[in-house]
């Protein structure tokens, strides 16, 4: 739409810029236009358009793929806020289709069935920015080296159990803190240990922070969960099944938005935690055997 000479689209700065704009916000999973409107009304900063929320993907089993383009278009037409959509790990053609739809952010997601056992998508080849999941700092940096503009914890989507996301955030952010204390020689060892590119490890040591925003995803079901993720150092949160699998989605969505903004203010957290009805029932992580865990997808 812009025709000014000398202007450029799809640069890393422009792509990372949108991730910057989503900070302090809540990105909500929605399966239709009606839910997307509820999410926007509640103050979501973006919606993730998908056919089934992770809790249902987990229940149904089978191969899980990108959503139908008309379903995504229906959601784009319903809201003003950015619309994200998921593609399978390594499935660059799904990503080409999603980009052509004009989606604002692509999630190369372990929640869908991986399409490639070795390779993630070359994300530099796209104009649209990508977010990828990570369980530890090495994985997070490998995704950045492939062009990811935002990293989120993987958590364990569809469980309503925050424990995995907490583990991932602590691991990623804890190692960042250690790297900022390391000397030059130790950075080589860090890069080797993390199986991550040395220049990115050096960048963390120099700037004291991760190259792109780090968000929390997986298992957030309550305002307290969102505030926990933020206090641990996440810069925004994704809520998947936690809203539309609860008793009363609209007030819960609004409460999680407020809790994410006022994450250090216990008085606000008390107010927004009151009378929300039952959260999603959830699945305790101990009840899921290793082969059914999404977080192990991706490498």
């Amino acid at each position: 739409m812009n025709s000014t000479p000398g202007s450029s689209v799809g640069t890393q700065r422009v792509k990372r810029g949108l991730a910057e704009m989503l900070k302090g916000g809540v990105i909500m999973d929605v399966v239709n236009a009606e839910q997307a409107k509820i999410a926007e009304d509640a103050g979501a900063c973006a919606v993730m358009a998908l056919e089934r929320v992770p809790a249902d993907i987990r229940r149904d089993g089978g191969v899980s793929r990108m959503s139908d383009p008309s379903m995504i278009e229906g959601i784009q037409a319903a809201v003003h806020i950015p619309v994200m959509a998921k593609v399978r790990i390594g499935h660059f053609v799904e990503a080409q289709i999603i980009q052509a739809l004009g989606v604002d952010f692509i999630d190369e997601s372990e929640v869908l069935t991986p399409a490639d056992e070795k390779h993630h998508i070359d994300k530099f080849a796209f104009t649209v920015p990508f977010v990828c999941g990570a369980t530890n700092l090495g994985e997070a940096l490998r995704r950045v080296s492939e062009g990811a503009c935002m990293i989120r914890s993987k958590g364990e989507a569809g469980t309503g159990d925050i424990v995995e996301a907490v583990r991932h955030l602590r691991s990623i952010l804890g190692d960042i803190r250690k790297i900022t204390q390391a000397d030059e020689a130790e950075l080589f060892e860090w890069a080797k240990q993390l199986q991550a590119p040395l220049p990115l490890v050096q960048e963390i040591a120099e700037t004291g922070k991760f190259p792109v925003p780090i968000f929390c995803a997986g298992g957030i079901a309550t305002p307290a969960d969102a505030a926990l993720a933020m206090q641990l150092g996440a810069e925004a949160v994704f809520v998947g099944s936690g809203i539309f699998k609860s008793d009363d989605p609209a007030p819960r969505a609004k409460a999680i938005v407020e809790a994410t903004t006022h994450f250090r203010d216990p008085e606000v957290l008390v107010r927004v935690s009151r009378g929300l009805g039952a959260p999603m029932t959830g699945i305790n992580m101990d009840e899921i055997n290793q082969t059914q865990r999404f977080a192990q997808r991706g490498w």
Partner: peptide, 12 residues
């Protein structure tokens, strides 16, 4: 008004 994210740009 300048479009979706794929139309986002930088310029002088």
């Amino acid at each position: 008004a300048f479009g979706r994210q794929v139309d986002s740009f930088e310029s002088s």
